[in-house]
Structure formats: C-alpha cells, structure tokens
Design a protein around this nucleic acid. Structure first.
Lengths: 140, 140
DNA sequence: CGAGAAGTCTTGACTCATTCAAGAAAAGTG
DNA sequence: CACTTTTCTTGAATGAGTCAAGACTTCTCG
C-alpha cells in the first residue's frame, strides 16, 4: 500500500485525487481506529499544512464512498478505519477505550436478520462488544 | 407504573429518592428513545423547575444503576430507555433517525460470543441495525 | 497544451450537547 | 430534630464538529 494505491482507490471511487485525500486515506490506513485528532496529526506528517476542515471533509467523502468506515462507540469521539465491506465488528474496552476488530460470531453476515424489523428495511448491522481489554484486566 | 413504582425502583437500586430522579425516570419511561432535550422537557412537565444539570446527573446515575440504558447511534445525541436487561437491540432509520426496538435475532444472548475476542473479557454486545423506516421508505 | 467549470481547500468564526465547579438545599440516619 | 452526605441549582466553560466565503486545484474538452 503506497501512495499510488491510494490514488487508485480514489479514482476507482470516482473521486478527485487531491493531496489531502491521499494523506487522510494513508493516515487512516496506517492507524486503524484512530480518532479524528490522530488522523489530522498523521495526515500532517505527510502534508504539513492540511487544515482540520479538509480532513473532516475528506473523511466524510471517503466514508460516503465506502473507502473508510467510521465508528462512534458511546463515550468516544469518531474513529475511522479502512477495513470495510467485510462485516467485521469491534470490541471496545470500557476502561481504556481501546478498540480491536472481531469477525462476526455467528457465521457470516449473521446479525443482519433481525427477528422483527417493524417494517424497517435494514441494510447494515453494527455490533459493538463491550468489555475489558487484556491490559486493563490484569491491572484490576 | 405510577410514581410509587418509580420510587420503589430507586430504593431497590439503593439510590436516594429525589423529585428530579422520579421525574426523569417517569419521563424516560413515558418516552422511550427520547433524547436528552426531550427528557428534560418531559421531566419539567412533572417538575417545572428541574435544572438540565439535575437531569443529566440523574440520567447518569440511573444508567449506572441499570434503571435506564443509554444509546448513542452515530450522528445522534444520547437517547434513553427504561427497557433494560433483556438484551434487545435497535433499528435506526438513516433518514429520519427514528428508533425502534428489536429482539435479538439469533436466539437469546447470541452475539455475546465473538469468534475471537483478542483476550478481551466481553460483558455486553450492542447491536444497531441501520436502515430505512416504513415512513421514509414510502416517501422515496 | 491551455482555459474554463466544477469541485475542494483554507481560514476563521460559531454551535450546541455535555461537563465542570461552588455553594445551597434536600434525603436519609440515629 | 439536628447532622452528615448526597444531590440540585446556577452559571460558566469545553470541545468535537459544522458553517460560510473566498481562493485554489483538479479534471475535462477544445
């Protein structure tokens, strides 16, 4: 995954290839589950003068195009990742807030079937597991 | 469910019985999935001079005691409900933000088993189904 | 290759849900 | 009923995220 790949991803998504977008995409790819502030910092490592606004815009655009996915566990700010489209979920530590990926428990695309959807047309199931991470468990 | 019941619930949870708490509990019970502002409004219908701060405090306390549960779908403010402890989940309309309850799809307490928890000790699985509500589907 | 249109970025101000803090008031205890 | 502790009121502060206007790129097409 180098810069050329990210540019290609943008083109494939019919998005304009701009420096901020490439930097944001690379930043999110390099720091999965990072919050916006971290993404801004990481993006600035590649492109020192990006404005936070450009990063917010890019994140929104990339999210809409499905190149990045955003998650917002309660009590946390928005976080982003580039692993999309594979129906994986997250474990969040109640203590330190760290996040890890988990593949879906019950086979594939499982939770997508609610027992009674009240007439809602469901297109995605988002699962967040709450618990305590290994590090925090030890220091209890 | 009248005022006495709410007071009893507070006592059972070893919480002090105060007017604001009773009002908040009643308000949340009467308006499931209401956001904080609505809860404040509903609580003031019962107790005109509650401060918003008291409502926030009460909601936190009640949440910690398990009498109410808070949910925060991405893009929405905090919402509260009194239906707790039965492992049910939510459908959220991407368009209008309305929320409905759904019982868990795969049997009972299903999603609690992540395939690989990375050493996390999981105590709760929170599922949010995203889709379009009946009303918004029609007006497409 | 160069100009034009459309889409993006920069800058800077602003919103608003939620939190913080200090003193006043009420709840439970004996 | 007085005491201790918890909770509430008031009012200000925080901060992630948004809005807006103008300057600047990117892509397209001649």
């Amino acid at each position: 995954m180098d810069q050329t790949d990210f540019e290609q991803q943008l083109r494939d998504a019919a998005l304009r290839v701009t420096r901020p977008r490439v930097a944001v995409l690379a930043a999110v790819h390099a720091h999965p589950h990072a919050d916006t502030e971290s993404v801004i910092a990481a993006a600035r490592a590649l492109l020192p003068d990006v404005s936070h606004q450009a990063v917010y815009d890019s994140l929104h655009t990339l999210t809409q195009s499905g190149l990045v996915r955003s998650i917002k566990p309660a009590g946390s700010v928005a976080r982003y990742e580039t692993r999309t489209g594979d129906n994986h979920h997250h474990v969040v530590c109640r203590n330190c807030g760290s996040i890890d990926d988990v593949d879906c428990a019950v086979g594939h695309v499982p939770c997508l079937t609610a027992s009674d959807s009240h007439g809602f047309v469901i297109d995605e199931a988002e699962v967040i597991y709450w618990g305590t991470c290994p590090g925090c468990s030890v220091r209890t």
